[in-house]
Design a binder for these strands. Structure first.
Lengths: 347, 347
DNA sequence: CTGTTAGCGCCTTCAC
DNA sequence: GTGAAGGCGCTAACAG
């Protein structure tokens, strides 16, 4: 409070010990006498000493800082992800640098560089569109572990956490079969994409497990949009043997399917069960009584952070470890459109 | 890549100059010969040098790091706020430590302490419930500016950014009067709170400006909840001279008012105009055709960051500067409940 | 168990 | 314009 910041040397002086002793008590070392430790701690409190982690980091050539960069924090999926990361990072005594790229690879490059200069010991990144595998090469070369989440970067030699499309679709079908449905359609999505293939694969496997014959007519590929959903349900309802439920490629499609059902005087969730992959998380409450399959973003964040910290602590950066995270969410929203998951008030 | 990290001394050696010269080019000083600068920059790139900000911070006893702590990042209001902060912070060459407290004052204390140890040069905080003015004393004593956002902490001698309830309510009335309404009710909220008084004040002032007589019957205080909204509209509709529009204490009330209108076979937004303070941001798309008044969280974040950086750069910490930020948002949502503000897909 | 001695990588006087 | 020291606050060896 008087002159400049108080340092270890000040408190060593005041406590009548040497700086190293002070340093040891700061690190909670057991190599120091209980009485001395107590005395030092008292002085620390009295002088209002604050530990300078920067100096320690410099000396030890390592830090307890991790970087997390997301492409769109405005999307609550990523916000939840960041919260999940923060939870484990915090309780591990780390702090997180968080940056938002807004889907700009340039900005991403900047913030990653900045974080590196600040000495992050690991990085979790939900890459902006257009990110290349080479973009993280400098980090991994320097022995800084990187965990990519949500989107996969083919060829990047780092750990990735992406949703398990196969298991998700499978869980959706299982859920519907459990409700007694036998005519379950798969609606929406472009058939020539990898994601479509994975989700369809999960769908087929779960059908087989439930001993339901696969019917090609029930797979209705359309654009992965709301309009696509409307189109899909329209086509499905032309079938002689109509479906009673549908797994939708994503929730946009699911919304469209609901629209289409209502146009036919059918009530989604009552007359016809709809399950959608929850890719557009933000809109979750827009259509009540809709069941969705989604990865739990917070859980994904936690897993990403654990994965990262494991590598940080072991000093080993992993290469090409694809892990998966999926959760089945059955939403119990009220017809009013405001359910128990509605957020807390601000003020 | 070969042995340890490359430092200024390495590049000085390789470029045939001294470390100080390197240091000068790193800082973009004009005191260095153009040719030398170029050569040094080449070597820097060749050796893959990365600047060690930690060391620089230590030496200069300052950092380009700001802390931001929010009480609930899961609430998209705060996520947007963080994005706003990030924007200005990033372009000012700073990085942000972000932490989530989840409304825990203990956690808040921890993260703030941790940030301090890491040498933040400023802090933006949306305080957890129960935060006391004294909690930020250590920071301000150390000359570290603090900006409190969203919630006010009475007695805290720091800058605060809160929404301008008076101006917001006023803008709402103005909006409704502009649409031709003359019987505008004020619905919901407990009459004995400061926030209620402020919003009601703005309502009254705007009425006066629009030359509409204030009618006590049109102020219907109820619980600031959905049920309260239902109750409020019920009571208002018993009046001989019924309202044709309402400013609602918050959006929960507004939802209830809409519920109540529908129960009376009235269509909100068509037969009866409803404007609500958007305190529960997350539910924005739950009730289509609802007009809301809200502070723009991103804008608030940007202003907070600007305010903070101004203090950081000037070295002056401000005390007790209450500023306000309000924006009128007229939502144009489609009847389907999914509007153009729906978020981007994740994958 | 505690003190002494060197730096971590950078920036800042000061000479040259 | 450039080089030579010294030190920011801390910790990692060693001694004692």
């Amino acid at each position: 409070m008087s002159k400049g910041r108080v340092t270890v040397i000040d408190i060593a002086h005041a406590a009548g010990v040497s700086k190293s002793t002070v340093s040891l008590v700061l690190q909670g070392s057991s190599l120091v006498n209980e009485a001395t430790r107590a005395k030092v701690n008292v002085v620390i409190r009295e002088l209002g000493y604050v530990y300078n982690r920067g100096a320690a980091n410099l000396r030890q050539a390592k830090s307890k800082i991790v970087g997390i960069v997301v492409n769109d924090l405005t999307n609550s999926f990523f916000a939840e992800l960041a919260v999940g990361v923060d939870m484990v990072v915090q309780s591990a005594g780390y702090v997180q640098f968080l940056s938002n790229t807004g889907e700009s690879v340039d900005r991403q490059r900047e913030v990653v560089a900045s974080m590196r200069e600040h000495g992050i010991s690991g990085l979790i990144v939900s890459p902006a569109r257009g990110t290349e595998a080479a973009d993280f090469k400098p980090l991994t070369n320097a022995g800084i572990p990187v965990v990519i989440v949500v989107r996969n970067i083919p060829g990047a030699k780092v750990s990735s956490l992406v949703s398990d499309n196969f298991a998700g679709a499978s869980a959706a079908v299982e859920h519907l079969a459990g409700l007694g449905h036998r005519r379950i359609a798969f609606m929406g999505g472009f058939a020539n994409t990898a994601v479509f293939a994975e989700r369809l694969g999960g769908y087929r496997e779960a059908l087989a497990k439930a001993e339901i014959a696969f019917d090609d007519d029930l797979v209705v590929a359309t654009a992965p949009s709301r309009a696509g959903g409307v189109e899909a349900v329209g086509r499905a309802m032309l079938l002689a043997h109509k479906p009673t439920a549908a797994v939708c490629f994503n929730d946009a499609v699911a919304f469209g399917v609901c629209d289409g059902l209502r146009a036919r005087r059918l009530e989604p969730g009552v007359d016809f069960a709809v399950v959608g992959f929850d890719d557009v998380i933000e809109a979750e409450s827009a259509v009540p009584a809709l069941t969705t399959i989604s990865v739990d973003p917070q859980g994904m964040g936690r897993r990403a952070a654990q994965l990262l910290l494991k590598q940080v602590n072991s000093g080993k950066v992993e290469a090409e470890a694809i892990v998966s995270a999926v959760r089945l969410v059955v939403r119990q929203s009220s017809g009013a459109g405001l359910d128990t998951t509605a957020r807390r008030a601000v003020s």
